[in-house]
Write a protein that binds this DNA or RNA. Sequence first.
DNA 1: CCCTTTTCACCTAGGTGGTAAGAT
DNA 2: ATCTTACCACCTAGGTGAAAAGGG
Lengths: 233, 233
Amino acid sequence: GWAGEGPGAGGKNRRVCHAAARLEMGSLWEEFNRLGTEMIVTKAGRRMFPTFQVKLSGLDPLADYVLLMDFIPLDDKRYRWGWGDGGREPDPGVLSPSPPCRYAFHSSSWLAAGRAEPAAPGRVHFHPDSPAKGAQWMRQIVSFDKLKLTNNLLDDNGHIILNSMHRYQPRFHIVFVDPRRDSERFAHQNFKSFSFPETQFMAVTAYQNHRITQLKIASNPFAKGFRDGDPEP
Amino acid sequence: GWAGEGPGAGGKNRRVCHAAARLEMGSLWEEFNRLGTEMIVTKAGRRMFPTFQVKLSGLDPLADYVLLMDFIPLDDKRYRWGWGDGGREPDPGVLSPSPPCRYAFHSSSWLAAGRAEPAAPGRVHFHPDSPAKGAQWMRQIVSFDKLKLTNNLLDDNGHIILNSMHRYQPRFHIVFVDPRRDSERFAHQNFKSFSFPETQFMAVTAYQNHRITQLKIASNPFAKGFRDGDPEP
DNA sequence: CCCTTTTCACCTAGGTGGTAAGAT
DNA sequence: ATCTTACCACCTAGGTGAAAAGGG
């Protein structure tokens, strides 16, 4: 997908107004999204897979930029995985159409199960190469593979804190480092944000949808030990 | 050891004139130096061991600095390891007193064997966290563990190019990033250099002094597979 | 019952010197 | 004869989901 820009591209600084971001591994993200992406959260922090990666363009090669990510709750619900209590038909809280419920009739599905927990501390993750020149950021794919998700509200490793069994939308931000003295006054003009709907996910402490598990095993090199049968290069 | 500063501390910018660097793992460096340190160079690039690490002080916490290293030929000779041709006494080119020749009567020693090869391209290695604030650099030990040595004159991985069988002195530089427009005019005032004599070494493609090999195996965690006998924690 | 935590075998990724073959 | 290269077993370091144990 290309550049799911945030609202209000008007009034932006010329150093960011032409910035664009293309999500890498888009087909893999979409494959996960069709099943309902799940991301593991642990106390120590767990990477995302797929890794959030973007190819940037439209930056000023000579200007400094900071790149960062944050995670927005997609709704105010908490979820559970199952058939609904007593084995009745799924209640109206069944997720539809995002993630789609095509798999619902196969087995279980995600059901709304009450209001969301109080939002965890809204942390951000700065790309560790920040700040850097636009030319440097555009030279190759920018990968957020150091970003880790945790469910530990008291985490002091700087990881992103999320509530398990809640849904999130990753957001990506490009911030122009304004050299002007009163740059705070222009802060709202100096950044541009991107949301790729295919990257939304459910935070979990253990996978619920077995198809997600199998797709992770099939596509994450670090899970190669769990693959069986014939390989496909 | 502390801060082996270069010549001419006078006329320096106040952002660097009080900077100091303490070499970490000094006793290990000295242990190697007593035997005559050797560092492997390979086509693909090899790390140094011990790793060059320093603890910094005296920087302006709010100023930006770039940290880098380079390697200076210690003399204009090339060396060979042996007894001298025909088994005669070591010729006058035997290294003394740096590295000392205490081991010479045990077996072999380094002998001068002609003039140095033409100097390899004089590359530098920027610490990958550069640039960063003084506060960041002083917060913890600065480690150059990404630095690699190569003997490939055509290397295009940005590694340090050295001639095998030649001796080198690592140098460490602190450069204040001067925000002034005409900062080039002050470049000579904005850096401070450090040389620690205990870090000098002979570049080799294979270890010559068996005592060096044994000390590397005993002290480098990645060589643990070659240790034998009882461990010492 | 549902969710979380801990531990583990099995991977990726890459840093060691040994060894034997190759180059000059 | 001396130095260099390529490959190897054996490590460190850390990212996987499985499975079992733990907790409300």
